[in-house]
Computed example of a mutant assay.
Amino acid sequence: MNKSSFLLPIIAIVAAVILSSVFVVDEREKALVLRFGQIKQVRTEPGLGFKVPLVDEIARFEDRILSLETPVIEVTPADDRRLRVDAFVLYRIDDVVQYRQAVGSGGESRAANDLSGILESQIRAVLGSQGVTSNTILSPERSALMDQIKTRSDVRANALGLEVVDVRLRQTNLPEQNFDATLRRMIAERDREATDERARGREAAARVTALADRTYEEILSEANRDARIIEGEADAERNRIFAESYSKDAEFFEFYRSLAAYEAALKGENSTMVLSPESEFFNYLRSDKGEAAAE
């Protein structure tokens, strides 16, 4: 036998030993090197690592964000209206050593079960706390409640080596037996609010109408006052003109006034007047008066 027949097995054994002593940590994971169950190395960065062949083993853990859906639970807010809620949780393994010690060989399933219990207790605690009503849970204010659940759950999840990244309440429903009663109560509340709004609207309309009526009366009163003032000034001006005309030519003024009286008295198709022929009303209808006025 030649040397090559001895060297090849040796080289193969050495290569196998070298390969079994090298391991790779992916960028999506963290790893622990365990020797007889005891932690010897913690690898949180990606790259090559070395271990003792046949003695050390590698425990790998996800470094990505994981998700968990909690089961549906019933909570009782401050207004005693029970709700059925469930949550969607994002979390990650923050401390692999503490995570390994907390969950042991149970791995991810035990961690998810423990985290689900933490979340259920905190959901009940936050949504059932004083001052939190079902309307608050169903309103946009629920985002603040989710932040509280996330913060409180994260504190307790740290004992498992976990970090709670986010908590979202998914479904928030009423139990079937309470749905109809709650719906009727909500309809009654909305009807009452609508009645109040209509009453306030009628009150506002009455105020506007009263203000408009008062303004109308004030404007009309001022307009009538101004009209009377203008009429009085016009009458005074007319009287002044008449007086001035009378002082210049009294005879012509009398003639003009008589013609105006004739026009007012005799206009129309069937005007009938019963007067004495000697009445002064006909003075300017006589020929001698007419000639005198004409001269």
Results as ranks from 00 to 15, higher is better:
8 L>E: 03
9 P>E: 05
9 P>V: 10
9 P>K: 03
10 I>T: 02
12 A>K: 07
15 A>V: 11
16 A>S: 13
17 V>T: 04
19 L>E: 13
21 S>Y: 03
23 F>V: 10
23 F>D: 02
26 D>C: 15
30 K>M: 03
30 K>N: 12
34 L>A: 09
37 G>C: 11
38 Q>T: 15
40 K>L: 12
43 R>K: 08
45 E>I: 15
48 L>N: 08
48 L>A: 06
50 F>D: 06
58 I>H: 03
59 A>T: 03
59 A>P: 00
60 R>K: 12
63 D>W: 00
65 I>K: 15
65 I>Q: 15
66 L>D: 03
68 L>W: 01
70 T>I: 03
73 I>K: 02
74 E>P: 02
76 T>K: 15
76 T>Y: 10
77 P>R: 06
78 A>F: 14
78 A>N: 10
81 R>V: 10
81 R>I: 08
82 R>T: 03
89 V>D: 00
91 Y>N: 01
92 R>I: 00
92 R>V: 03
94 D>F: 04
94 D>K: 08
95 D>G: 07
96 V>S: 01
97 V>P: 00
102 A>C: 09
102 A>T: 04
104 G>V: 09
105 S>H: 12
107 G>C: 05
108 E>Q: 10
111 A>Q: 01
112 A>P: 02
117 G>F: 07
123 I>L: 06
123 I>T: 03
125 A>S: 11
127 L>P: 02
128 G>I: 05
132 V>W: 00
133 T>Q: 07
134 S>R: 02
136 T>G: 09
136 T>M: 06
138 L>W: 02
139 S>K: 15
140 P>T: 01
144 A>I: 01
146 M>S: 11
149 I>E: 00
151 T>E: 14
152 R>Y: 11
154 D>Y: 04
162 L>P: 01
166 D>S: 12
172 T>H: 08
175 P>F: 05
176 E>C: 04
182 T>I: 09
183 L>G: 10
185 R>W: 05
185 R>A: 07
186 M>S: 15
199 A>R: 11
199 A>Q: 10
201 G>E: 09
202 R>T: 14
205 A>V: 04
211 L>K: 15
211 L>Y: 07
211 L>I: 05
215 T>Q: 11
217 E>Q: 11
217 E>W: 15
218 E>M: 01
218 E>T: 10
219 I>N: 09
220 L>V: 15
227 A>Y: 08
230 I>D: 13
231 E>F: 13
235 D>T: 14
236 A>H: 13
237 E>Q: 09
239 N>I: 08
239 N>L: 08
240 R>E: 08
241 I>A: 14
248 K>H: 07
253 F>W: 07
258 S>H: 11
259 L>M: 14
259 L>K: 12
261 A>C: 07
262 Y>L: 06
265 A>W: 08
272 T>C: 04
276 S>G: 09
281 F>I: 10
284 Y>E: 04
285 L>H: 13
285 L>W: 05
285 L>R: 09
287 S>D: 13
289 K>P: 04
